[in-house]
């Protein structure tokens, strides 16, 4: 198959970027989207041009490094996959594919399609943890946890922190990411101890970093490669409101 690619090129955060058009040919359907970009890059290098920079690492859909906003959708046209598990058989021969970086004020472009998502780490650092220091733990079976809760906590914890929710949201809101983490801990007895402080600190950090607000458009859920539910956003709202109402001054 042959494709026409329109790719965002930007040398660094400081300079302006623009779209460039490229062609790739002879791509098989079983080639992954990133492997297609590898092919392009090999050709660019051979021609003496600079290859396209893009983030990627595990290439099995779990590390959350790959991003890319493909034809108007983060991680491309397939539901519930990362770009690394998007295969070219999903496109038609001769298609034009427009590839942009994830865009949000807290995700500045570093180069071409690579963006800085360390704001997610900062939100976690603000309180996305249970303060259990090494060596303090009681026996793992000391607190039975209802399977339902454990499963729900897992569903929330399955978030890979790729930022597709932010990229998809018309408001560049990080609510799905933050709420997944808040929910993960709020659903477990171990997490309850710090729940009130946690939700307030994480939300405050999220706002401070310049993410937008949630207007319940649910594009995040639709585009999340791990199918994280917006139920988590409601849970976080609940947690946040009740924490605000009852926490001492």
């Amino acid at each position: 198959m042959d494709f026409k690619l329109k790719i965002w090129r930007q040398k660094s955060a400081a300079v302006k970027g623009r779209f460039e058009t490229y062609k790739v040919s002879g791509i098989t359907g079983g080639t992954s989207f990133l492997e297609m970009l590898d092919v392009l890059n090999e050709e660019l290098i051979a021609k003496g041009e600079e290859p396209v920079a893009f983030d990627h690492d595990c290439r099995e859909g779990i590390c959350g490094t790959c991003s890319l906003y493909i034809n108007g959708r983060p991680h491309g046209p397939d539901d519930r996959v990362c770009t690394c598990q998007l295969f070219m058989r999903r496109f038609k021969d001769g298609d034009t594919i427009i590839i942009e970086p994830f865009r949000a004020r807290p995700f500045p472009v570093l180069r071409d399609l690579v963006v800085d998502r360390s704001s997610f780490d900062k939100i976690i650092q603000a309180g996305g943890f249970i303060s259990a220091s090494t060596g303090n733990a009681p026996d793992a079976n000391a607190i039975p946890i209802p399977k339902r809760n454990a499963d729900k906590a897992f569903d929330a914890a399955a978030c890979i922190g790729c930022g597709a929710c932010v990229a998809a949201c018309k408001n560049a809101s990080a609510m799905l990411f933050v709420s997944a983490k808040v929910s993960h801990f709020a659903l477990l007895p171990q997490g309850k101890v710090e729940a009130r402080e946690r939700v307030q600190k994480m939300v405050a950090k999220m706002d401070e970093l310049g993410f937008g607000n949630c207007t319940n458009t649910y594009a995040c859920e639709a585009e999340c490669p791990k199918g994280i539910s917006v139920e988590n956003i409601a849970r976080m709202n609940r947690e946040f409101l009740s924490a605000k109402l009852v926490t001492d001054k």
Binding site: N71, G72, A104, R105, S173, G210, G212, T215, N216, Y218
Partner: peptide, 29 residues
């Protein structure tokens, strides 16, 4: 206020705008 914050949160826009098929009216509040 929320809308202004939301606009500020994405200073450079996409060339191709995505959509949400879950809640179409929510985009135009």
């Amino acid at each position: 206020i929320l809308q202004v914050q939301n606009w500020l949160a994405r200073p450079s826009r996409y060339k191709v705008e995505g959509y949400s098929h879950l809640s179409p009216f929510s985009k135009f509040m």
